[in-house]
């Protein structure tokens, strides 16, 4: 057995099957649990069978609910919109971070502030957010921005700082303007790395999105999960969780493709 050998060379078949193994174990464990629970209590709602899960997904995706809406569609649109606006603000964070990293006066004014700002647990200041921004869309976006943007700002700042001074001096001596140095040389150089950071923070964005939607909303993926919890509709909640994960995976994939296509020079 070469299981514990650092120089093991798994076969092609092992390469195909082994990655699936943990998934299969989880799914089988789930199916068995559901079966055992339903044998004991046929009306069990906590661990729905796969049939009930599919039915729950079908009902939320393809059937009108009591309000005459296709829930999954309405919720996905509402949440995607919030997600997109939140992420757009993260790009604003990139600009702020770049300016802080490049312009010493901006650095002096903002660096300490963002360093502190970054440490505020956004969920702890929810009541303040609601009083300032109300319960509408603004507060949900604000939660995402306050929660994630400082990280992006600081990451961009550090990456801009790390660009060798020689390059900047060289550009200036070749008669580049200060704006050109920032936006034509430093920004393109650090941008793919910054994109990676944004991509890795999607999880945090989604977390804050769901937190915001659980507190006050009329639609949204997080909203639905918290409302149907009131009647233990796990047959809706589990498909929603899988759907959210899938959408997050798609968003992540999109950025990865963007980086790979646009920045072919990266890591070479």
């Amino acid at each position: 057995m070469s299981l514990f050998k650092v120089n093991a060379k798994p076969s092609i078949n092992a390469g195909r099957i082994l990655p699936l193994l943990p998934f299969i174990i989880c799914i089988v464990a789930y199916i068995i649990t559901a079966q055992v629970r339903h044998d004991e209590n046929p009306k069990d709602k906590l661990v729905p069978t796969s049939k009930q899960l599919i039915d729950g997904f079908r009902r939320s995706a393809f059937e009108e609910d009591r309000k005459g809406e296709y829930r999954l569609l309405v919720d996905t649109i509402a949440s995607t919109k919030r997600f997109a606006i939140g992420v757009a603000f993260l790009f604003l964070g990139v600009i702020i971070g770049l300016n802080m990293g490049m312009l010493p006066y901006f650095d002096l004014v903002f660096y300490k502030f963002f360093l502190f700002f970054d440490k505020i647990p956004a969920l702890a200041i929810l009541p303040i957010l609601f009083i300032v921004f109300g319960l509408g869309e603004v507060s949900k976006i604000a939660l995402i921005v306050i929660g994630v943007m400082p990280t992006i700002v600081l990451d961009t700042y550090l990456r801009a700082k790390a660009v060798p001074r020689e390059q900047i001096t060289k550009a200036l001596t070749l008669d580049a303007s200060h704006l050109e140095v920032m936006y034509r040389i430093v920004l393109p150089k650090i941008f793919p790395k910054v994109l990676e950071t944004i991509r890795l923070n999607f999880k945090a964005v989604i977390l804050f999105l769901i937190a915001g939607e659980s507190l006050a909303a009329t639609a949204g993926l997080g909203y639905r999960i918290f409302v149907v919890r009131r009647y233990i509709a796990m047959d809706i909640i589990i498909p929603y969780v899988i759907w959210i994960s899938f959408l997050a995976f798609l968003a992540d994939l999109a950025v990865r493709i963007w980086i790979r296509k646009k920045y072919t020079w990266m890591d070479k």
Binding site: P127, F130, G134, L135, S214, A216, T218
Partner: peptide, 18 residues
């Protein structure tokens, strides 16, 4: 009517503030 699902932990300050 339009129902806004609001968490009981924030419903009072949210209503008072708005």
């Amino acid at each position: 009517v339009i129902l806004v699902n609001t968490s009981d932990s924030d419903i009072a300050p949210a209503f008072i503030a708005n």
